[in-house]
Design a protein around this nucleic acid. Structure first.
Lengths: 122, 122
DNA sequence: CCGTATCCGCAGGGATACTG
DNA sequence: CAGTATCCCTGCGGATACGG
């Protein structure tokens, strides 16, 4: 996914931009990041907040996000255990353009739904 | 995927923003849109330009994009047949925030790759 | 409470052959 | 040239049970 000079970009593997966008383009990453935007959250808080994500997928998603540096994971040696997740600078930085895209989707989903209906009628 | 008031948003099905983002969040949609950004393209031109997409996936992706109003499809009754695809206003409009995200990925993929390596060493 | 391990079903997508 | 139809296989992700 190139920028200005479309031609100068390599679609060949490995494409770092596709690599990044594929990673956060999965079913859950963006939703998890947005849920973490207001501040620190614990694992089960995220579960409840998101609602329809399984433990496994939340766990995997958080691990990926931590691995890529979007999120930090802090374990408090207590009983019962407490683990807190929060966005890094990189995570917040990512949410800026992402939020713009979310806003776009929010503004245009009616137009899109309308286009879909029209297409299906014809 | 909410915006300002995170709480006011419904994660329940159907969520129109997730609906929109899921649709263009598939493996190919964004790449096809970016490839159409410079101007009109024919089917096989898109194939060659993108390189690693199959006919079937290009066909499906274009149909979805047309259905959602991102792209127009124009058939010229010639022999051999000629079909041209081009972005609509909606398509161009979408690419603005999307381009910002692509630029972000371009700017930060080294940082991310570095984070990944560090994570894997520990 | 915070996860991982295991099993499993199903849909996304590649390869190929065929059509207008 | 511009697709569609068919086959097939991989891997994503849900459910469940178990571990620290």
């Amino acid at each position: 996914m190139p920028n200005q000079p479309l031609e100068s970009f390599e679609y060949d593997n490995p494409c770092p931009i596709r690599d990044v966008l594929d990673r956060i383009g999965d079913q859950w990453s963006v939703l998890v990041l947005l849920t973490l935007q207001p501040g620190t959250q614990r694992f089960n808080e995220l579960m409840r907040e998101i609602g329809d994500i399984s433990k496994q997928m939340l766990s995997r998603t958080l691990k990926h996000l931590e691995q890529d540096g979007f999120v930090t994971r802090t374990v408090y040696p207590e009983v019962p255990p407490r683990v807190e997740y929060r966005l890094t600078e990189l995570g917040h930085s990512f949410l800026e353009p992402m939020q713009a895209l979310v806003n776009w989707a929010d503004s245009h989903h009616r137009t899109i739904a309308e286009a879909r209906r029209r297409y299906n009628r014809e």
